Every structure is written in C-alpha cells, then in structure tokens.
Amino acid sequence: MNADELTMLKKAADHLHSWTSGDLRFDEHIRPVKYVFAPDGRLVLPMMVAMLQATETVVHVPRADETAMELLVSPFEFDEEGPDGGLADRWRIYHGDPPDVHWACLSIDLARFHGMVIDGEALQQSNPFASVEPGICGELNREHVDQVRATLLKVLDVDTEEPRVVGLDPRGIDVRARFDVVRLAFDRVLEDEDDIRTAALELIS
C-alpha cells in the first residue's frame, strides 16, 4: 500500500471500531443490528435465519445513509453451545439480551468508505490485546469506576451512574453506559502490550 492508502485504511479502521451498531441489509431488507468484534476482527451478532440465508449481506456503519461505511460481509453461523460460545457471551456483556437465538461471525470481504474501496482482509484486524483485555477491564470496573464516569461526562457529555468497561483494543475502550455502548479513543494506535494498561489508566485520569 502507498501512503495515501495506509492513511485511508487507518481512518476506516478508526471509524469501524468507533461503533458497535449499524444497519444490516440482507437482499432487499434492512434491519438495525448491534455487533461486537471477535479477537480475530470479525463482527459477531445474533441474526435472523433470513439474514443467514441472504444472497448478499451488507453492514452500514453506523446507519444506512450516504455517509455510511459499507461492509460487504460473509456470515458464518456458530452454535453458542460450541467452542465459539464465548463470542455470544461477549455480545451479551456489551448489549444485554439478544433479539435472536442464531449467532454468526461476519467476515469482511470488502469495504467502501469515503468513495474508496478497501480490502476486507486489511480492515479485519485482530486484537493483539485480547488476552489481557478481561483483566484490564475488570481492574477499571473494580478500582476506577469514578474516573470512568467522570471521563465519560467530560469527554463525551455522557452522564451514567454505573458505567461498565466492556472492551479494549489498540484504538480505545468500549464502555456500556445507560442506553448504549460508547467509545473512549486513545490518541494513537497502540502496538505494545506493555503500554495498554498505562494508556487505559491515562485515558480516564
């Protein structure tokens, strides 16, 4: 990739990870959906059978309008009682009770963003901090909830009594607030696992 392509890829990844909801178009139908990211970068969400059987599936992030990122995706159904069941649990931690009993991982085939086509494999980025994510989220929720609450109010003007940090990746922290999941972004993309805890604490300081 040249410099311009790398810059656009970064902007696209930043945009994608800023949201956990979108509009899913399956054939001629559109439905609002909520998703989370699997450690390998795929999107995880509960899906209707009709969504799983569609000939074409597109996720618009954050909504189906002219400014949206469009993701052409391939759904792969999984059993929440099987080896991937933890992904369904992750979705529940973010969003609560699911609207359907069928679950799928969505691989990104390609994306359209600001008039450019982006390779899906390049955009579908794994989380290198997945192994330490639960521990850091737990620490923030146990020991720093007041700082998280104050940061949400200061940075995002979101006032919530019981914020819960639910996710962490190289670009920021996901926090479940009163009505939705919101994003506290780092000022850079982190690469070193040794930096992630310090960066998370600095973000809410």
Results as ranks from 00 to 15, higher is better:
31 R>K: 11
23 D>Y: 04
31 R>T: 09
50 A>K: 09
185 A>Q: 12
65 D>Y: 05
146 D>F: 01
71 L>E: 04
152 L>E: 08
101 V>I: 00
88 A>G: 03
151 T>P: 00
34 K>E: 01
166 V>H: 02
97 D>P: 07
114 H>E: 09
81 E>N: 14
18 S>Y: 00
195 D>M: 12
172 G>H: 05
201 L>C: 08
90 R>T: 14
13 A>N: 08
54 A>T: 06
95 H>D: 02
9 L>F: 07
23 D>M: 04
46 P>M: 14
13 A>R: 11
39 P>D: 08
190 L>P: 09
69 M>N: 04
101 V>R: 00
8 M>C: 00
150 A>Y: 02
26 F>D: 11
187 D>V: 09
13 A>W: 11
102 H>R: 14
184 L>E: 01
121 E>A: 12
128 P>K: 10
110 L>A: 06
73 V>N: 06
57 T>E: 08
109 D>V: 14
195 D>E: 14
190 L>W: 15
118 I>L: 12
116 M>I: 03
24 L>H: 04
117 V>N: 10
12 A>L: 07
45 L>Q: 09
101 V>M: 00
123 L>A: 07
36 V>R: 05
174 D>G: 02
179 F>T: 03
142 R>Q: 13
47 M>Q: 09
204 I>M: 11
124 Q>H: 13
96 G>M: 06
184 L>C: 04
146 D>T: 00
169 D>V: 06
201 L>E: 05
40 D>T: 06
105 C>L: 10
45 L>T: 10
96 G>D: 05
3 A>I: 10
12 A>W: 08
39 P>T: 11
191 E>I: 10
97 D>R: 15
154 K>T: 13
48 M>C: 10
94 Y>V: 08
153 L>I: 06
119 D>Y: 01
68 A>S: 07
43 L>D: 07
202 E>G: 04
39 P>N: 13
151 T>E: 07
100 D>H: 14
14 D>K: 13
171 R>V: 07
103 W>D: 11
111 A>N: 05
118 I>W: 09
40 D>F: 01
125 Q>E: 00
123 L>S: 12
203 L>A: 10
1 M>E: 08
176 R>Q: 13
1 M>N: 00
53 Q>G: 02
54 A>E: 12
174 D>C: 01
